[in-house]
Design a protein around this nucleic acid. Structure first.
Lengths: 189, 189
DNA sequence: GTCTATACAGGGATAGAC
DNA sequence: GTCTATCCCTGTATAGAC
């Protein structure tokens, strides 16, 4: 059943808003990305944004959800053999979308509040990510065993922490450092 | 030369404001810590806060600076032998000051903007921290060498990333996971 | 369903009186 | 050194036009 009429227009507007939001964040930083400015880029009023998304926080959460679908984190890990390179590829790709990294990092902090609309999102996404890592990354070296769940938390933490370092100093080599960590934890794989 | 008169009062007020700010953040979260509420705790108006610190961001940056002095990160690393345990002790201590962790994480993100008052602070503090780690932590295992600078970035990233995980889920065992990482990277130390 | 206009509460910041 | 008063901007709720 095809999408037609005003319904189709709404869907298009939604996408347009999500893209513009990410665009503004990338250019001006999360802090200065106001609903007013995003609305101006789209060519509507701030109220129009709130018509589609209930609040600013929900809008930004939706941006993150959308990118997860597009970039598709999970497919890269489906095969255990490509887990390492797939993971590094995602990190390398993040280098090219600073706005997305800024948004992700900022919401990671704000979502600590259980009342934040992204709270459940981060809980579920993180758990899913760690499960994938635990399944597809070989466990640690025999002489210093690290159980899969701990390994997953370490890798996730390092990736998130490196983004903080990279944001404040873009010369930081995120993929290189992550590769060094993974290889150090799995010398015989 | 003793501090007297109105000068002493100003210094006392400054300290009082810094403590109240951290207190409010701990109870209500960074997001809901307004100048108005902090001012109420101190017993003054928001304008008084801005008299001592130029802006809200500078006030919060000052809180972080003050805690660095009190908790004294560096002393714990002065001896190479106690580097590991000293580092873990700091992390364990952070568990008891959630407001400070929230403040640090939030400013870590905001300070990515070069115009943010905490930008230089984070650049210098991070570099100093990594230098200390690189000096006092033995380098990686022989079969998977990790140079000291990379090791320092990994440990710092993991510590910061773990704080994000812990904030959204306080059951996360930060010290335990950090210990596992350090031991895995330095099996023969 | 899509959107504008309007109004409001709250935030941080500024100027000037005391 | 501190407050009052004011200003502007933010996000948001509502009403109603199309």
């Amino acid at each position: 059943m095809a999408i037609r009429g005003s319904y189709a227009k709404g869907v298009a507007r939604r996408e347009e808003i999500l893209e513009s939001a990410l665009d503004v964040i990338g250019r001006k930083g999360y802090q200065n990305a106001s609903l007013k400015e995003i609305a101006e880029v789209v060519g509507v009023t701030p109220a129009a944004l709130l018509h589609y998304f209930g609040s600013k926080e929900e809008l930004f959460t939706a941006v993150l959800r959308k990118r997860d679908e597009l970039d598709g984190l999970d497919p890269a890990f489906l095969d255990a053999d490509g887990a390492r390179d797939g993971f590094l590829q995602v990190i390398r790709h993040n280098t090219e979308v600073p706005g997305l990294v800024a948004l992700f990092s900022r919401l990671s902090v704000d979502a600590a509040d259980p009342a934040h609309p992204a709270h459940e999102y981060f809980l579920e996404r993180s758990e899913r990510l760690r499960a994938t890592i635990a399944e597809n990354f070989p466990s640690g070296p025999r002489h210093a065993p690290v159980d899969p769940e701990t390994l997953a938390r370490i890798i996730q933490a390092a990736a998130d922490g490196l983004q903080l370092q990279w944001m404040i100093d873009p010369t930081v080599d995120m993929p290189g450092i992550m590769a060094a960590l993974i290889d150090a934890l799995q010398p015989e794989s």
